[in-house]
């Protein structure tokens, strides 16, 4: 790019934007809608992923212990569990604690479990978290082989189904986002093509006079990028407003779905969307323009 022309390129881009106001506005609106959808898709994907991570990290293995174990034997079992490959965290739950937890699920006036049952039938147990939730079945099997552990429970059957679901949610949201991005590029390229088509005579003339391709391209790129940024700003404004009020209002109604709300992360999402605006404007212009440069 010849630097003495930068001023000229910007001037041309701004003149063209204001001269073709209706078309510029149409393009900016199209971009805003596309980027808004893209942003919604990103936030949905991120939140779905977050929700899936949380579901997966809730998975734990409970190792029930023989009632006959002495205190030193309990320590030995704990050491063995901790030494098992893939174990992240081990928590001891005594039989008294287990009974208390069960009691808390009933109201104390209706049922006093201690009294009803006579003696505490619940065993001591270890709650174990796996480093990688996907490996929970293998880890559970290894723990089950440790002497002193008489039974292992990790939600067999349910866990496998959950992993199926999380896998598909992740794949589908990625596919959804890619389709949306391609659709946005196509839509934007079409809108920009309209704007360029209206100026094909000028482009033809520039080429015949001896303009290089880049001399013709720059004002259009600047125009495309400006429109992309404008569209992105509108979209980000709407998205940020909408998502913030969603966090504030729906947190209580949808308490079981943890919404991602770290400011630094959201800022990253919004900046990426602005970058997407620039990219869409550039790619859209590039695709549309090349056909008219072949003179």
């Amino acid at each position: 790019m010849n630097f003495k022309n930068i001023g000229y390129f910007f001037k041309e881009a701004l003149i063209s934007l204001s001269r073709n106001r209706v078309l510029s506005l149409a393009t900016i609106t199209t971009m805003a809608v596309c980027i808004l959808f893209l942003g919604v898709a990103v936030l949905l994907t991120v939140n779905a992923g977050n929700f899936m991570n949380q579901l997966e990290s809730d998975i734990q293995i409970i190792a029930y212990l023989d009632d006959s174990l002495t205190k030193p034997q309990l320590g030995e079992v704990e050491a063995n569990i901790k030494a098992t490959a893939g174990v992240q965290e081990v928590t001891f739950v005594s039989k008294d604690e287990a009974l208390q937890r069960l009691q808390s699920k009933f109201s104390e006036e209706d049922y006093d479990l201690q009294q009803t049952l006579g003696k505490n039938p619940l065993p001591n147990s270890y709650e174990v978290k796996a480093v990688n939730p996907q490996e929970v079945a293998q880890v559970a099997q290894l723990i089950g082989e440790i002497p002193g552990v008489y039974k292992v429970n990790y939600g067999q059957g349910v866990v496998e189904k959950l992993f199926q679901v999380t896998k598909w949610v992740r794949i589908l949201s990625m596919v959804f986002m890619i389709i949306l991005a391609l659709g946005a590029i196509f839509l934007i390229a079409t809108t920009i093509r309209l704007a360029i088509f209206a100026r094909r005579k000028e482009i033809y003339l520039m080429k015949l006079i001896g303009a290089t391709d880049w001399f013709v391209r720059w004002p259009f790129f600047i125009e495309g990028i400006l429109m992309g940024v404008a569209g992105a700003l509108v979209a980000i404004g709407l998205l940020a407003g909408g998502y913030t009020s969603l966090i504030n209002n729906a947190q209580t109604a949808l308490f079981f779905v943890p919404l991602v709300s770290q400011q630094s992360f959201l800022l990253q999402v919004y900046l990426s969307l602005a970058a997407a605006g620039v990219l869409l404007g550039t790619v859209g212009t590039y695709i549309s323009l090349n056909r008219f440069l072949n003179v």
Partner: peptide, 16 residues
């Protein structure tokens, strides 16, 4: 090609 064209001038029937 741009350099070739800079050595020429073109006049059109419809002025352009």
């Amino acid at each position: 090609v741009p350099h070739l064209r800079r050595s020429m001038g073109v006049v059109f029937q419809d002025f352009k």
